[in-house]
Structure formats: structure tokens, C-alpha cells
Amino acid sequence: MKQRKLGNSNLFVSELGLGCMSVGTDEIYARRIIETALEEGINYFDTADLYDMGENETIVGKALKNVREQVIIATKVGNRWKPDQSGWTWDPSKTYIKEAVKDSLKRLGTDYIDLYQLHGGTILDPIDEVIEAFEELKTEGFIRYYGISSIRPNVIREYIAKSGLVSVMMQYSMLDRRPEEKVLPQLHEHGISVVTRGPLAKGLLSDKMVEKLAAGKGYLDYSFEELSEVLPHLKEVVAGVRSFTEVALQYNLANPVVASVVAGASSPEQVRENAKAIKSQPLTNEEVSLIKQVTKANTYQEHR
């Protein structure tokens, strides 16, 4: 599988990353999914301290222990579980970040994290303090690089201006083209990569399209009626002999600022399907143009 450089770092990530939240809590079965990802050439594994109250990090760490130097582990911080585990609160303080990283390292069974990401964030956060925490963790050797996971343009602008982040994780798909308006061009200009999530738009852009449409729901600013018209048309004019999953994942990769497409998988078969899609032929300029004609150029209405 091809790899792309992650921002201004010296990390090269596989074009498909495994979103580990979906592997579940059965350690044996989760290991099968992760081992299948390795067999397919995936070297980028994305988890978070929030997932399954930290258990996901433990499972991922154990599964990757024997190949630790060959893989890139990304995890996230900022969501703090309540003592009674009834939910979580947002805590982007320097004190918490520097405490939480040690817990993540212990669960992952490693002495460094390749990419440490702020798991969200608002313009009201103590952004300078967050950056200070990440920079100190880099200096101390606990993390190699840092990024944020955010779709808020105003927050992303602040980090571009003030920090040394190498990546931004954000939702992006043919049905969610909001990042194209300003965010993707800005990040590209500054040498910062995007790691995408939600490329299949909750399955609407997969070969389960008909099944998902049957649920009768809309998506973002698309009504159910609009989806019923757009999706079959999109599949007809662009997919052709390709699977719809191929078109969806390749659409993300067609943007040069995208380093890796992170897709979840709840079975080894799903990993193989996603890997096959990533390894398929890139979209032509004409195909990308056609997709943009058929879909909406959505824009962010908030957090601008």
C-alpha cells in the first residue's frame, strides 16, 4: 500500500488508516482485524483514550507490540471520563493533557506516541496552554508529533497560526465537502496534512447505499429526497465498474492535502474491502469534476 508524508513530520502513513474504535472489545477478534490491516499494508492506527474507557488503547497496544517500530500509533486526549463513568467532560488543560498522556502510554504498552491529537476543541479553549503542553511532551520524548481532531475553521486557523501541528483530522466525503471551501487550501498552503474520517458518510457512499437509504433519513444538508436522487445518479455516472466504496475513498485521496483516509472496520473482510478500494486506480480529474457537479459544495455555517 502506498504511503504519504504526514505534514512536515518524518512520518509516512499508509493511504488507508484503521479507525480502531470499531474493532470492539473482544481482544481475540480485534487482534484478527488489526492483523489483517497489517497484512494489507496498513501502518497507521488511530485510537483514543475515550474509546471503551481506555480499553481500546490496551487492545491496540497489545496487538501491535511485536511490530511497534514499524507502525504509527495515533491517539487522542481531552475527553475526561467522570468518576462514576456515566459520561465525560471536556478538559483541554495543560495539567490534564500531561497526566493523560502517561495513562495512554501505559495502556498502549509503549514509551512514545507517534501522533498525539486533541480530541475536539473550541475557540474558548486555552489554546496557548494546549500547544505548550504538546510542545513540552515532544521535548520530553513522550510524543513525536501532535495534531488536532476538529472541523471548526476558527479553531483550525488558531492552531495553524500558533502551533507546530502536523495534521488535522476531520470529516470529509463526497457528501460533506465543507472542508474544501477554505480549510483544505489553508492547510495545504502551510504544509499541514489532513487525516480524514467519515469517508463513507455512515455507509451512504458504500455498496450498502440502498440499505442505508431504506432508513429514510437525510445527511447533513441533504434531505432524504435529495439523497434518493443524488446517490443513484452519482453511482451511475462515476462508479461504473468500480465499487461505490472505491469512488468514495479515492475522492478523499484525490485532494493532495489528504495523507490518510481513516476508516473503521468491524471485521477482517471489511478491512480487505477498504484496502482493495484504496489500492484501486485514482480518480481522473474528469471524475472528480463530475462528482463536484453532482454533489453540493457544502459550507460551514458555524465556527467560522
Rank of each mutant, 00 (worst) to 15 (best):
V166G: 12
N274H: 12
N43Q: 03
G141K: 13
Y222W: 02
S150H: 02
Q70E: 15
T95P: 00
W81V: 02
E181A: 15
Q281L: 10
I28L: 03
G264M: 05
M170E: 04
R31Y: 00
A63F: 04
Y29K: 15
K162W: 00
N285R: 11
D103M: 09
S9A: 08
P83M: 07
L105T: 11
L234V: 09
R197G: 02
L137I: 03
K217N: 12
P232R: 14
S206Q: 12
V271Y: 08
I131Q: 10
A37Y: 07
L187Q: 11
E99N: 08
E225A: 15
H119M: 06
S150E: 00
W90L: 07
P282H: 13
D84P: 04
S149T: 14
P185A: 12
L16T: 06
Q70N: 15
E236A: 14
E181Y: 14
R304S: 05
L200W: 02
K202I: 01
N56F: 02
A297I: 00
I131K: 12
G147M: 05
I278C: 09
N10T: 12
A30Y: 01
G218Q: 06
L105Y: 05
A214P: 00
R157C: 02
K62T: 03
S173I: 02
A30M: 03
S167F: 02
F142P: 00
D46Q: 07
E302H: 14
K76A: 05
L118Q: 13
V194K: 10
E99T: 10
R304V: 04
S163T: 05
Y96S: 06
M209W: 06
L137C: 07
I148V: 11
V271N: 11
G240R: 14
E129A: 13
W81A: 09
G191H: 11
M21Q: 14
S280W: 01
M170S: 10
L220T: 04
L118F: 03
F244W: 04
E35Q: 15
V261H: 06
E135N: 13
E225C: 08
E132M: 10
E246G: 03
I148E: 08
M169A: 10
P153A: 11
K62M: 01
E57F: 04
K162C: 01
G121W: 09
E40G: 09
R68F: 03
Y172A: 05
I278T: 11
K62H: 06
T284K: 10
L283E: 04
N298C: 08
H188M: 12
K182V: 00
E273S: 12
A133H: 07
L105C: 08
M169H: 07
L227R: 12
I28Q: 12
F45N: 10
Y300D: 11
S243Q: 11
P282W: 11
E132A: 15
S280K: 08
S149I: 04
D128T: 09
S267P: 00
V71F: 06
K235H: 13
